[in-house]
Each structure stands twice: as structure tokens, then as C-alpha cells.
Design a protein around this nucleic acid. Structure first.
Lengths: 135, 135
DNA sequence: ACTTGACTTTGAGTTCACTCCAACTTGTAT
DNA sequence: ATACAAGTTGGAGTGAACTCAAAGTCAAGT
């Protein structure tokens, strides 16, 4: 599979794929005689891994660390598990922040819906005690 | 309330608060005679709003737009509602991506747990069809 | 062989959201 | 009065993650 095809499949730019490869977020990709990237099934798996982790906000540096551990062989299972657990914790934290803001937003949107009808905006609840649980 | 106190309350840096004010993510803050910021209850509400939205990954530019609409008065209820709905959509999308990656991660972590015990890593599931639903 | 378009590398540029610095002013404690 | 901490401004710097540009190479069609 050419870089173009991979990019179409995952809706990303060729430069992003090359960047991921350059920094090590994916291992070196197969090449043709002429030196052109020819993504194998395995390469695609790595690409997917990087995209999935990045989609969830996992830092590139963490993806790089994971790939490195994988390349170091079977002695790194525990380290890989720990790294993924750490990534998981970060994602859960981020989701919790989003959940709280969603609640806030839903309340506000509801108030604005009413305000659009009546012409008057009323808050019967205050948000002043903490910033979405961050205090 | 001084900038220091606000920062301690919300665990952010003074420079961040000044930055938010400068770009308009919060309206101009009350000042003392000498020109030192003295956050009122209302100012705090704006600070909280900015922090909450940012915590959920809403771009600063969107917070700025919201504040601008609020400052334009009662004629902008519908516009504000629409803006918050747009922010909401973005957050929901991000959470969905996180949810999918969490599933992936949980499966992988579970496999690694087993691998740590047995010394052998086995995938009885493939992730090759899409990148966490992004395809 | 020739054109055209896709691919290559290296390195620089961009965007976002802060974060820091320097020089100066304000407020508090002795 | 005098330190000295804490605040102020304007502007520069940083880190993360791309994204683009330039100059050249490769491959497919005519």
C-alpha cells in the first residue's frame, strides 16, 4: 500500500505519516526497490496504533516509548502494560473533565433555549464553587 | 481577590490569567487604584468559565467568541446557544474517540497481564479494520 | 524519450496555548 | 525611609504536533 492509500484510509496527511515514522511513533516502513514506502499489513497495524492513541490524546512521546518497548522484544511485557495503564489513566482523567463540562454546557444550553423563547436569561444555579471540579 | 489568590484557587499561573484577559477569554478584570487586578465574584465566574471550557478542550478562540457574544447583550442568546452546542459537539466527539481507545487499551492491557504471567503474548482479536472508528 | 504526477529527504515554518523575561510600579513590613 | 515581595506591561520564547517548501527521484502513460 502506498502512502497515499494509507492516508486516504485514515484521513491523514502523508507528512503526518512520515513524521510519525521519523520520530519513531511507528517503526521504519517497508520500501520498494526505488525507496518508496510500501506499507505492509504489519506497518498498517502500527499506523493504526499511533492514530488511535493520538486520537485519544496520548502524547506522541508516549507512543514512541511504546513502540520502542515493542521493538525490544518479549522482555518488556510488564513495561508495556504499565505504559498502557498510564495512558489509560490520562484518558480517563480527560474524559472525566469532559463529562463535567458537558453537564455544565447542557445546563447552560437549556437556559439559553428558554432565554431565546422568553427574551430573558435566568440562572437558577451557580457555578462559582469550583471550575468543573478542578479546585 | 488578588491574582495570586485566584491562581491558588484554580491551580493556574498568573500569566495564564493575564493571557486569558489579554486575548479576551475573560473580560477586563476590576483594578485597584494602583492598577492591580482585584477579581470580583463576577470576574471569578468568567475565570471559571474559561477554565472549564479549556479543561474540556474547547479552543481558546471559541471561549473568546462566547465572551464577546455575552458582552454584546441580550440580543445574542441564540448565537450563544449555538456556540455552546458547537462546543458540546466537539466534546462529545472527543469523548467518543477516548471511549473507543479505552476499549482497545483495556483489551491490550488484559493481554499483557496474561503475557506477563505466561511469558507469551497472544492477540485473539485484530485491530486492523479501522483506526478506532476513524476510517 | 518525454512528460506528468507521486514520492523522497532535509530542514524550515506554523499554530496553539501558554510561559517566561526585563524593566518598572505598587503595597507591606520594619 | 527602606527594603523587598508581589504586581504590572510588552514582547519574546517554548513545547507539542504537525505542516509546508525546495530540490530532487521514481514510475506510469504516450
Amino acid at each position: 500500500m502506498t502512502i497515499r492509500e494509507v492516508c486516504e484510509k485514515y484521513h491523514i496527511l502523508p507528512d503526518t505519516l512520515r513524521y510519525y515514522e521519523r520520530v519513531g511513533a511507528i517503526p521504519a516502513v517497508n520500501r520498494t526497490e526505488g525507496g518508496i514506502r510500501d506499507y505492509s499489513e504489519e506497518d498498517m497495524g502500527w499506523v493504526e496504533n499511533a492514530i488511535c492513541m493520538r486520537n485519544a490524546g496520548v502524547p506522541v512521546e508516549m507512543v514512541v516509548s511504546y513502540v520502542k518497548l515493542c521493538q525490544q522484544g518479549d522482555g518488556t511485557f510488564a513495561a508495556r502494560r504499565d505504559l498502557l495503564k498510564e495512558a489509560r489513566t490520562g484518558i480517563v482523567k480527560q474524559m472525566e473533565k469532559c463529562r463535567r463540562e458537558l453537564e455544565r454546557l447542557d445546563y447552560k444550553i437549556e437556559r439559553y433555549e428558554t432565554a431565546v423563547e422568553t427574551g430573558e436569561l435566568v440562572w437558577d444555579r451557580t457555578f462559582s464553587e469550583d471550575a468543573c471540579g478542578q479546585a
